[in-house]
Design a protein around this nucleic acid. Structure first.
Length: 611
RNA sequence: GGGGGCGUAGCUCAAUUGGUCAGAGUACCGGACUGUCGAUCCGGUGGUUGCGGGUUCGAGUCCCGUCGCCCUCGCCA
């Protein structure tokens, strides 16, 4: 091999190397056999270099070159040469030179791959289109499309050869490095915590691991290192972080995998502002070093109630407006029974203004919007088209002139606008309008996928508890160790719904990218919170005894946050599919199509585990 | 568990209302070609239309079931 060890990578050669004898190793990306020349684009993760084979270098070598096929692995030795004038390839970083091959070793052959690994850049496509146009031919409808994702996941090692996936994994590496450097420079310690732990109630479904030595007992894989990091605070490791794998046995989504990675972080002797400060600095650093984008600081903050009112969600996409407006004040002037009934029964009437969108939606389009709203529990959707000084709507006859005037004013309506209104219980109004808002943004192309735009905000003042109608009890909104706002402590027992938590989420472009809180460091307060959650002291002791004990042994005030790194990479990379940012992801049923996991095991293994 | 979408050649897709429709591009194989770069040109191989059943003179197309994949609701402290 030493004779064939590469001297350069496939992305490296430039005009300065002209005349040098070099060795390249890589995969055959494409080959072009011209009878008297063979061109090969040799690819590795650094780039691509054009190889030229000519018969005068030896017929044996040339015949070998004609045999080359996609994805063969080869080593070549040759002389770097300037390309002929006018034959440069502007799509390649190495496009001014080529390698005149003098010797070659086929390191491995490859059967015809199940799908093409070759990736054509947008620039190359555009150049091709231009060429076709010059020749006066019609542009053929041949657009590159990726093979079925199922197939690509099955042959993940082939799909991962694609430059765009290699770029994303490179970005992911860079993100990890920026985080480690940033936190290291500020005195944080990276500490690992166990994967085999104890199952805790509340929260997501655990992945369980049977114990061989204690038949019938189980470890749980961590949903997050939450408890351990609090214990580290008690232990005096006042600035901790970990890039930690977390596992939750819940159903998957486009932005959710059963195993994912968090930047887990915790600090002692801090309040919310200290956490914000660290994370805002880190956020700016990440965007600067990964994308060269400057994020203005401090980051804006939005209270949970405000977010719910204006955007219908606690993770609003702030890249566009379409803000929701409360219209309860306008209802008395209308004669629409549905509005009056909603308000009378404690519900809300709210709407939003899709500016200039009246033309964009036909009757059919409006029906589709209505269907969309209904999917989230709304009984209907009121639409109003603003046409000059006239309002066109199915409920027009219930809107006397004063009501029309008031609606226009409340929603800031101008001619050409489309107003959409939902009346129902508040939760449903929020869900319906919140989802309508994102739907409209997509239909109206309010977000340009090719123009990087990052709107980052903190969501604060979450409620401490939510009522679980199924279990008929209060559940922790964030988690049971979150500290309530001090001024709300007195409400704990008499008005749980009114207790605000010292919790915060970090939202980027509509994705929840982080969440954390100031924790409870006082065992009495912790016991009171457990009580609200319906846990008896005995249950609390049984489940979290070690934490309650630790809090008694000199726990410092502390708090922290966890960032969902997979989602960060998604946003940095501009993809909407979490599988694009994980080297070996699971499919939607949590299967690994490449290895076949999960799979049955040998009965012998089960017997050893007492199963 | 519910809702929606998809499944046709190795790959990406097409195939009026059920009626020579099983096709195109690409890949692959063979040939031509003195500078290509998604090479081009000529020719060829390649299909149990996911699987099973049904309706029909006739099913890729309609019906029922089933499997797989994607999106989504529930779920995800």
């Amino acid at each position: 091999m030493p004779r064939w060890r590469r001297t350069h990578t496939c992305g490296e050669l430039r005009e300065s190397h002209i005349g040098q004898t070099v060795v390249l190793n890589g995969w055959v990306n494409t080959y072009r056999d011209h009878n008297i020349f063979v061109f090969v684009d040799l690819r590795d993760r650094y780039g691509m270099t054009q190889l030229v084979f000519e018969p005068e270098r030896g017929l044996e070598l040339f015949r070998q070159a004609q045999e080359l096929r996609s994805e063969w692995v080869i080593a070549v030795r040759g002389t770097v040469a300037r390309r002929l004038p006018g034959k440069e390839n502007p799509d390649l970083a190495t496009g001014t030179v080529e390698l005149k091959v003098e010797d070659m070793q086929v390191l491995n052959r490859c059967p015809t791959p199940p799908f093409e690994v070759v990736e054509i850049t947008e620039e190359a496509k555009e150049r091709k289109r231009e060429k076709v146009r010059e020749k006066g031919k019609e542009l053929e409808g041949r657009e590159e499309q990726l093979a079925n994702e199922e197939l690509r996941l099955q042959y993940r090692y082939l799909d991962l050869r694609r430059p765009s996936l290699q770029r994303i994994l490179g970005l992911r590496h860079r993100l990890n490095k920026v985080i480690r450097d940033y936190l290291d420079a500020r005195g944080f310690l990276e500490i690992e915590t166990p994967l085999l732990g104890r199952s805790t109630p509340e929260g997501a479904r655990d992945y369980l691991v049977p114990s061989r030595l204690f038949p019938g007992s189980w470890y749980a894989l961590p949903q997050s290192p939450q408890l351990y990091k609090q214990l580290l605070m008690v232990a005096g490791y006042d600035k901790y972080f970990q890039i930690a794998r977390c596992l939750r046995d819940e159903d998957l989504r486009a932005d959710r995998q059963p195993e994912f990675t968090q930047l887990d972080l915790e600090m002692s002797f801090v309040d919310r502002e200290d956490i914000f400060h660290v994370i805002e600095g880190l956020t700016a650093e990440i965007f600067q070093k990964c994308l060269g984008v400057t994020i203005p600081l401090p980051l804006p903050r939005l209270s949970y109630p405000d977010a719910m009112l204006r955007y219908g969600t606690d993770k609003p996409d702030l890249r566009y407006g379409l803000e929701i407006v409360d219209l309860c004040g306008v209802v008395p002037q209308t004669e629409f029974r549905v509005f009056h009934e909603a308000v009378a029964s404690g519900g809300k009437v709210r709407g939003l203004n899709a500016r200039g969108a009246a033309e964009a939606f036909s009757r059919k389009g409006l029906d589709e919007l209505t269907e969309h709203a209904k999917r989230f529990g709304a009984k209907g959707l009121v639409w109003i088209k603003v046409e000059g000084d006239k309002l066109t709507s199915p409920i027009e006859k219930f809107l006397p002139p004063p009501a029309q005037q008031a609606l226009r004013q409340a929603l800031g309506a101008s001619p050409g606008d489309l107003l959409l209104i939902v009346a129902d219980q508040e939760e449903i109004v929020c869900q319906a309008l919140g989802n309508l808002r994102t739907r409209l943004a997509s239909l109206l192309n309010l977000v340009d996928p090719n123009k990087p735009d990052f709107k980052i905000a903190w969501i604060v003042d979450f409620p401490q508890f939510l009522w679980d109608d199924e279990e008929k009890r209060w559940v922790a909104n964030h988690h049971p160790f979150t500290a309530p706002l001090e001024e709300d402590w007195e409400k704990l027992e008499r008005d749980p719904a009114g207790v605000r938590a010292q919790a915060y989420d970090l939202v980027i472009n509509g994705y929840e990218c982080g969440g954390g809180s100031i924790r409870i460091h006082n065992p009495e307060l912790q016991a009171r919170v457990f009580a609200v959650l319906g846990m008896t002291p005995e249950q609390a002791r049984q489940r979290f005894g070690f934490l309650l004990d630790a809090l008694r042994y000199g726990a410092p005030p502390h708090g922290g946050i966890a960032l969902g790194l997979d989602r960060w990479v998604m946003i940095l990379a501009g993809t909407t599919n979490i599988r694009d940012v994980i080297a070996f992801p699971k499919n939607q049923k949590a299967r690994d199509l490449m290895t076949g996991a999960p799979a049955p095991v040998d009965p012998k293994q089960l017997k050893e585990l007492g199963l």
